[in-house]
Design a binder for these strands. Structure first.
Lengths: 347, 347
DNA sequence: GTGAAAGCGCTAACAC
DNA sequence: GTGTTAGCGCTTTCAC
């Protein structure tokens, strides 16, 4: 087994306390003692025992992250952002997948808490996550809610402007003349999805259009489910002329459904998706999307957690990061105001 | 702060030892004592302190994973596999990114080891990883080398059949009549890449073709670098008639380069990629690829680690998972033996 | 079946 | 500056 600080002390001919001070670099130690200790540590291949240190210091220098599925490029990138923030302060990431299952999430939170993470970020599966998350917040473990708003919890929350982004997408479609706009979505239990659906509805209403519930097709949180959900919509007799897909998995499934149905965007249906995944520019046509700052969401969550760990006791922050509409080709020609003006002038 | 086992013992009116036994479920405890303890724990909201437990038990029930970049869908999926294997045995994953940098990797390994992970999986950045990895193996911490062979280390290794997969890809191209086949690759420092390059060369040689070093274009490990690398190849006066891309990032970059250059597959160049990422079927044309069992690689690595943690002291296993050639449209018509036979009969 | 007590490896008073 | 010492919360003998 590896050498302990006691071994190092003996080898260096000093007390354990001196060895500890020299190694961890706190308190006083003479230059001479420091050198001897460091040399001894080197010789013995001493490696600090973070577990023992954590037990006494009360800090594991570890951040927990519970996501739906690390396989989802959204979460992978957010995790990357959080890991980067953590790494800069010598923290590491303890990761768990909830599979969008409430009980799995509860178990994951439990497991990370038992391991005494210094802070915990969770992308809550549903509003009911509140039940196991509020005790965490109450216990004083820094907690940040990631990606999905959760009502009733006063903790730092980092999300994208989901409603705004979705509304922008739908407005774009409306501006292009669409009146029959469908949504391919996963469950509104998922907070971000609920917000996107809300954005969709409000954009329709604000244009004086009625919201047709048949056009909102809801399925599970995977590309396969997105495929099924999209087909349900596309095979309706009154097929929508445009589709808004609520996240990258839905978009992927929808693109596959279009292909299998022999439908083309924007000719047969216009398509606009939430999330700018890396493949959106290489499909034909390139996809018009609402992009959210995924890496930043993860990084900001990490930074909030780290700030809380460092003692920040300020009021809970609700951080909403901007989304951006990226117009490419999947909705057809963009009709800008000046285009309209030109058209007017020409006719 | 949260209640300790001592508090629970006091509350239940038993000794600490009895409380511990009842809670952890080992050793003896009367039904009556167990009930009292469990009730007390419930009342106090007791949560086991995994750190303290780890200190005495010597096990953190945590597996470490060091990958190049969790944002890479390959690693995200492998991580998922490993997390699933871990989760089944109540283990969690401590994650770190190396960014394909040797020193970062060393630091990451150090950080995870300091936190006393029970086992460690690493996708080594380069052959030089040996320097910091062999002491780990020697120290007795279960170690598995993931995705990339590493010479000189006798530990469990889980990889895909990279050479075989690459050779199959190149053979496919040769069978279609290609004689000038380029490769878009990241650095051969990366073990899996080196093997794929080897497979490429051996397939050429076995067909009696010479290996033209100008056709092997090497860049960094990102889609942007893949783009740059691919363009370098595609803008040559003697542009290859076919391209083999060594991994998903290279494929993505290459597809973008083709698009920007106004080149079409398979008409202008045939394209075959390593990795079957989720978007390979929705680009035009759907991509012919070598698929590797990514999830399985991660899961198997996790299982090996868990087995080692459980005491398996058998010889180091070198597990090579099969790849599969998936023929789609990006290399043009597939000429099968029966096609050739038919052609022969017709002429 | 239960309790007392030792100790995992470290940090942090506190005395010298 | 350096050493002694008391824990951190838990598991685990070993008596009883």
């Amino acid at each position: 087994m590896s050498a302990t600080i006691k071994d190092v002390a003996r080898e260096a001919g000093v007390s354990q306390a001196t060895a500890a001070r020299a190694l961890a670099g706190y308190g006083y130690a003479s230059e001479r003692a420091r050198k001897r200790v460091l040399a001894a540590a080197e010789r013995l291949g001493y490696r600090p025992h973070a577990v023992a240190r954590a037990l006494v210091s009360g800090s594991t220098r570890t951040l927990g992250l519970v996501v739906g599925d690390i396989e989802n490029p959204f979460f992978a990138l957010a995790a990357r952002g959080m890991a980067d923030a953590a790494g800069e302060k010598d923290y590491t990431l303890l990761l768990a997948n909830s599979d969008e299952d409430l009980e799995e999430e509860r178990l994951a939170v439990e497991a990370l808490l038992a391991r005494r993470v210094d802070g915990l970020a969770v992308a809550p599966t549903s509003p009911e996550s509140l039940a196991h998350l509020s005790p965490v917040a109450a216990d004083g473990t820094p907690l940040v809610v990631l990606d999905r708003p959760l009502r009733g919890l006063r903790v730092d929350t980092v999300t994208a402007d989901n409603a705004g982004g979705a509304a922008a997408a739908v407005r774009h479609l409306i501006a292009l003349g669409h009146r029959c706009i469908g949504v391919v979505s996963d469950s509104p239990e998922i907070g971000s999805t609920a917000e996107r659906l809300r954005g969709y509805r409000s954009a329709l209403r604000e244009a004086g259009l009625t919201v047709n519930p048949h056009l909102v097709s809801v399925g599970g949180p995977s590309a396969d489910e997105g495929y099924r959900t999209a087909r349900a919509l596309l095979e309706r007799p009154d097929r929508p002329t445009a589709l808004f897909t609520a996240n990258n998995f839905m978009t992927l499934g929808t693109v596959r459904a279009l292909r299998d149905l022999g439908l083309r965007a924007p000719g047969d249906v216009a398509l606009i998706g939430f999330d700018d995944t890396d493949w959106t520019t290489i499909v034909d046509p390139p996809l018009t999307v609402v992009a959210q700052p995924v890496y930043e969401i993860g990084r900001t969550a990490g930074e909030r957690l780290l700030a809380r760990c460092a003692g920040d006791a300020g009021a809970a922050r609700r951080i909403r990061l901007e989304t951006r509409l990226i117009v490419r080709a999947s909705c057809g020609e963009q009709t800008t105001r000046s285009d309209l003006a030109n058209l007017g002038g020409a006719s």
